[in-house]
Simulated scan of single mutants.
Amino acid sequence: MESRATAVLIEPWSEGDLGLLRATNAPEMMGHLGGPETEEKLLDRHRRYVAMSAADTGAGQMYRIVVAATGEAAGTIGFWEQISTSEGLPVYETGWAVLAEFQGRGVASRATALVTEAARTAGRHRYLFAYPKLSNAASNAVCRKAGFELLGQVAMEYPPGHPITSNEWRLDLRQ
């Protein structure tokens, strides 16, 4: 619904974003991802995100999603290097989490467009992939709106040890 659209920015992940990571780790946010992580795993993830920001190698970047008008943190998004499930080639993968109070306002779609440009600029890989769980209608809709091509369904483990079936979406960064 365009009248509810929210303009967003993406800002590189920083030390101060641990609270946002904790907020996105809520049970209602992690339902499609195997449930909340332990505090130890969250701290490890936060350190990896901060290191990605500091490295600036083109291998990937994590961001906080920020509401442009207010500066409020609305969620997380990023891209990182991965081997594609179906093709076995090095690619970028993307994923996002939008806090409940910002869902349904186009935040994930707008942030995905911004992260796509960041991955395109980084330039190490031709493709950007996303793997939302089949049951995650909202994330699958974001992929469709962002221009990703649906390649099919893939069996995966996420987190490790938890089998899931996901849609495999691909976006050509050279187009």
Rank of each mutant, 00 (worst) to 15 (best):
E2K: 08
S3Q: 12
V8Y: 09
P12I: 07
E15R: 13
E15I: 08
D17Y: 07
G19V: 05
G19W: 10
L20E: 00
L21H: 07
R22F: 04
R22Y: 03
T24E: 05
P27A: 13
E28A: 03
H32T: 01
L33F: 10
G35S: 07
P36K: 12
P36Q: 12
E37H: 12
E37K: 15
T38A: 13
H46Y: 06
R48Q: 11
R48M: 11
A51L: 14
A55E: 15
D56R: 15
D56I: 00
T57I: 04
T57W: 01
G58H: 12
G58M: 08
G60V: 09
M62V: 04
Y63M: 00
R64E: 01
R64T: 08
I65E: 01
I65F: 01
V66A: 06
V66I: 15
V66D: 04
V66K: 13
A68D: 10
E72M: 10
A73N: 01
G75H: 06
G75L: 06
T76M: 10
I77K: 01
F79S: 02
W80L: 07
W80K: 09
E81N: 11
Q82V: 07
T85Q: 11
S86A: 05
G88T: 02
P90A: 04
V91R: 03
V91M: 03
E93L: 03
T94L: 09
W96A: 09
W96T: 02
V98F: 11
V98M: 06
F102L: 07
V107N: 05
A108Y: 03
S109F: 08
R110I: 00
A111S: 10
T112A: 15
L114C: 03
L114G: 00
T116W: 12
E117D: 15
E117A: 12
A118R: 15
G123D: 01
R124L: 15
R124N: 13
H125Q: 14
H125Y: 15
Y127V: 11
Y127L: 13
L128A: 02
F129K: 13
F129V: 14
A130K: 14
A130Q: 15
P132H: 01
K133Y: 10
A137H: 14
N140R: 15
A141Y: 06
C143G: 00
R144Y: 04
A146G: 06
G147R: 12
F148E: 00
Q153G: 01
M156S: 02
M156I: 14
Y158Q: 03
P159K: 08
P159A: 05
P160F: 04
P160M: 07
H162R: 14
H162K: 06
S166T: 12
S166N: 14
S166F: 00
R170C: 06
L171T: 01
R174L: 11
R174Y: 07
